[in-house]
Design a protein around this nucleic acid. Sequence first.
RNA 1: GGAGAUUUACCCAAGUGGUUGAAGGGGACGGUUUGCUAAACCGUUAGGGUUUCGUAAGGGGCCGCGAGGGUUCAAAUCCCUCAAUCUCCGCCA
Length: 428
Amino acid sequence: MIDIKFLRENPDIVKENIKKKFQDHKLVLVDEVIDLDKKNREAMRHGDELRNERKTLSNEVGNLMKNGKKDEAESIKAKVQEINAELEKNEALENQYAEEIKARMMKIPNIMDASVPIGKDDSENVENEKFGEPLVPTYEIPYHADIIESLSGLDKESAGRTSGNGFYYLMGDVARLHSAMIAYARDFMINKGFTYCVPPFMIRSDVVNGVMSFEELEAMMYKIEGEDLYLIGTSEHSMIGKFKGQIVKEEELPICLTSYSPCFRKEVGSHGLEERGLYRVHQFEKEEMIVICKAEDAMDWYNKMWSYTVEFFRSLDVPVRTLECCSGDLADLKVKSCDVEAWSPRQQKYFEVGSCSTLGDAQARRLSIRAKGEKGNYLVSTLNNTVVASPRGLIAVLENNYQEDGSVLIPEVLRPYMGGLEKMTPKK
RNA sequence: GGAGAUUUACCCAAGUGGUUGAAGGGGACGGUUUGCUAAACCGUUAGGGUUUCGUAAGGGGCCGCGAGGGUUCAAAUCCCUCAAUCUCCGCCA
């Protein structure tokens, strides 16, 4: 959500930005908003006048009553009732304009950073940089679910019975490795100076509506029956929601938090669930990082944040690359975003394990998150990024550390979390 | 889950229908006094959103007493719904 003042003063920039995102059908929204905004301000001014008049006259009624001039008071009362009738009509108009403006503002995309590459869709995303040598082993790497099964680490059949498709039981050492990664990610971020946080795993509808659109909500969120609660799809929801309507002190910035949570997703979107694997599932666990900072520091943090994820995966001997979201693939709320992708030696290609975004002040405007500074209050910038999500991160580690004999080496940094175990070997 | 109490500014707190344009403390800040500090005294300290006038400095208007509705000529004050906090009971890891 961009600033309506900015739109008022720079309609051409807003339109140019829409064109760069190949959303030409939204161009008309800009002029509509300008027109509605004008009408709305007119209505507001009229309403203010009426309210002012009512206040003055009501006070007069009080004075007249005190002095026993009942008849005069009655005639003024009648006058105020007329004003109220008009005010009611006018307020309906004010509300209508405000709603129509908001509906359009929600659809107008955030102004992208100048560095975002122009492209129509995800096929035109741009590889920024590779980290680590993408190894092509001389032996075949099995499908990740088969690796996990060979290590007696997976039971999808039982999960199917208890919960249905998209769920899984992780078992034994593999389950432990999964938890080890999350725990290591937590400590990794704490060492970067982030504050660790375990947030609520359910949030109310007003928070959900603040962090995502209705369409996204329908596609992702599980609702608790009979309660005003949703299971979170990522801890970003509760972590950013934490600051909804708040004014933080400038000296507290930047706020750097790292949070653990399970994540629940309906995944009713285009891709759907995978039959066998653990790549796309209804439930996973994630270590997340969020930063709330001043606008001028946002780009520095953005670069630091994705590089933390790169560093994290490199410490697990997983080759990665960063893939920048092109204009057409960039979500409307974001200023700039890139995915961190891990190398899959089986598929000989990279796959997404994390996503780093800077949203400028758009999210803060929507949720009203401000900082109190010397020159007054201002909207903060918000950023979020994945440290690691598992099982997806688990897949990357298993494939990249798979040995010819079917065993899997445990990356050194994870061994302390595995009771010193160095290697997982198939039972048979 | 049940019963009761509470929610006003940085903190405490007065305020049950009409100069509340929100009292009074505390704290903070500024000043006087002072060799310095403290004390005392004086002063300042209600924000936030938005709109409008003005080149600007600045001045108006509207909203704002947990949130949202309602009653009324008029709401911090009366009514309803919701949320949070505290106490007790129940239940439970």
